[in-house]
Write a protein that binds this DNA or RNA. Structure first.
Length: 168
DNA sequence: AGCAAGATCGGT
DNA sequence: CCGATCTTGCTG
């Protein structure tokens, strides 16, 4: 069963751990692939110094201000596409960075494998025929750590335990 | 208009 | 530890 707006429009700190163990489905031309979501990070609002919304709305982060379920994609280091799912209600800039799926560890590696790039910016996961997330009956456990690659942020944001990893 | 820096990764 | 590589957004 596909997850819709009701699931994604909650606060990012509820959605992020809830995404662990859910199924990411990618529909390419002829082939449909399914992956377990194994690692995510939460980015929460303008006050979160690690969040792309920390300087307010810009052309890049505009979609983060939309209601939950949209896709936020951006390029880092001129090389890697980062795949994020917007959460929260309209006007609340939040997103979950998908850092790992079954078979691929690392946010840059999974976007390359699934061919996720700027073309999917703004795509709505609740209606898209290209990509969506499905419920998974099994119950999953996870561990929490601080987020990676955000040394530019200061405390307490740098140390917030907003990285969620599937417990094997 | 210019420029520093980046939610990474793979190779030394 | 270092370089790749280029868009973004801040600064002036």
């Amino acid at each position: 069963m596909r997850l819709t707006g009701e699931f994604f429009c909650r606060d990012v700190l509820e959605v992020a751990p809830d995404l662990i163990g859910k199924v990411l489905v990618r529909n390419k031309t002829m082939i449909q692939s399914r992956y377990l979501i194994t690692e995510v990070e939460a980015y929460r609002g303008q006050e979160d110094e690690a969040c792309h919304a920390r300087f307010g709305p810009t052309s890049r982060n505009a979609i983060m201000y939309d209601s939950g379920g949209k896709i936020y994609v951006y390029l880092v280091y001129g090389i890697y596409w980062m795949f994020n799912i917007v959460t929260g209600g309209f006007g609340m800039p939040q997103a979950v960075l998908i850092r790992g799926i079954s078979g691929y560890n690392g946010p840059g590696k999974l976007t390359k494998a699934l061919e996720i790039n700027k073309d999917l910016y703004g795509e709505d996961l609740s209606v898209s025929d290209k990509i969506w997330v499905e419920q998974h009956s099994k119950k999953h456990r996870f561990i929490q750590t601080s987020r990676v690659g955000i040394d530019y942020a200061s405390e307490p944001w740098k140390s917030m335990p907003w990285r969620f990893i599937l417990q094997p």
